[in-house]
Simulated scan of single mutants.
Amino acid sequence: MMGTEKNQSTAIVFILLGFSDYPELKVPLFLLFLTMYAVAVLGNLGMIVIIKINPKLHTPMYFFLKHLSFVDFCYSTIATPKLLENLIVNDRSVSIKACLTQFSSGATCVLTEMAMLAVMAYDRFVAICYPLIYTITISPKRCALLVTVAYAWGIISSIVLTYSLVILSFCETKIIDNFVCEYALFLSASCSDTHFSEIMLSIFTNLSEFCTLIIILTSYVFIFVTILKMHSASGRYKAFSTCASHLTAVTLFYGTIFLLYCIPSFQSSKLVMKMGSVFYTVVIPMLNPLIYSLRNKDVKETFRKLMHLNTISQ
């Protein structure tokens, strides 16, 4: 009986509607999302290259930023091409196996990004509150360990969540009003008991959000207290400016979570939920490298040098 159910599930497909409800906007949306995806790819890969080639940027803060850019690049590449494909093809079907692969990869990136943002908050906390022991506390080995923990948490959580979906049965082709394979869509499409899957989702998502937010908020409480105690206005400005980019990225990331999943009026709108998915997969990966580069003199200087060398070579 189990074998029959599994065979049925593998033969069934999901149909991702995407933005097919707005056929008149198909071309403008395609061009918009393609442009945003190109900016996200170039911005994140460019950030990785700039950090790698500039010795001034070989510090823990930029080491973490390099990995954040890598995660953003991966997440954007996992989801955006399917979004673009859905805008230009008539056949929007996707196999359950492909959908599970997309979900698993995307979940790894999202959960890793949560952990990475918490690690970066801890790094700023040590740098501002304990500058004299910063190089000892945030040593190269500690940096590697923190990044490894962030990736490990994302991968392990994703494996558990994916397993909780693999054990479900799907009895019929399901039309899904989105362009990405989200966890809730699998639950709504399943014809078996989803209680275990819902428990796993609740445990791992709440644990990730709670633990990372606690680390971030606690770090910034101590950071702001330390900044307020500084007597020099230039010192306060310098300390705050080093946190401004990260604080902006955290606000965008967790602000979207709060709007989409904590406010009932937003949850009731399918279009808003769909736009929330766009925000995660396209907008945030595009904005992060811009946020971190616009206020950073070293990054902008390295970028200008690269552009100058490129002009000379041509």
Rank of each mutant, 00 (worst) to 15 (best):
M36Q: 12
Y37H: 15
Y37P: 01
Y37C: 06
V41I: 13
V41P: 12
L42Y: 10
G43I: 06
L45D: 02
G46E: 07
M47D: 09
I48T: 08
I48S: 01
I48F: 01
I50T: 11
I51Q: 02
K52L: 11
K52D: 12
I53F: 07
P55N: 10
L57K: 06
L57Y: 08
H58R: 14
H58C: 02
H58I: 01
T59F: 03
F63W: 10
F63H: 13
K66G: 14
K66N: 10
H67G: 00
L68F: 09
L68V: 15
L68D: 01
F70R: 07
D72S: 14
F73G: 03
Y75N: 13
Y75R: 03
T77L: 13
T77H: 06
T77V: 02
I78D: 00
A79Q: 04
T80N: 09
T80M: 09
P81T: 13
P81A: 10
P81I: 10
P81F: 08
K82G: 13
L83N: 04
L84T: 06
E85F: 14
N86L: 15
N86E: 06
L87W: 12
L87M: 12
V89Y: 13
D91K: 10
R92L: 09
V94F: 01
V94M: 14
I96P: 02
I96D: 08
I96K: 05
A98G: 05
L100H: 03
L100I: 12
T101D: 12
S104R: 00
S105V: 04
S105C: 13
A107I: 13
T108R: 02
C109D: 07
V110C: 08
V110W: 07
T112F: 01
E113N: 11
M114H: 15
M114T: 12
M116Q: 11
A118I: 05
M120I: 10
M120N: 09
M120Y: 06
Y122K: 09
Y122R: 11
R124C: 11
R124I: 07
F125Y: 15
I128R: 02
C129E: 03
Y130R: 14
Y134F: 15
Y134D: 04
T135H: 14
T135I: 00
T137L: 13
S139C: 05
K141V: 06
R142G: 00
C143N: 03
C143W: 00
L145E: 00
L145Q: 06
L146V: 00
L146I: 02
V147D: 00
T148F: 14
T148D: 00
A150F: 05
A150M: 05
Y151S: 02
A152G: 11
G154S: 02
I155K: 01
I156L: 12
S157R: 08
S158W: 10
S158A: 13
S158L: 07
I159S: 03
I159Q: 06
I159C: 09
V160S: 03
V160E: 05
L161C: 12
Y163M: 08
Y163I: 11
I167G: 00
L168H: 03
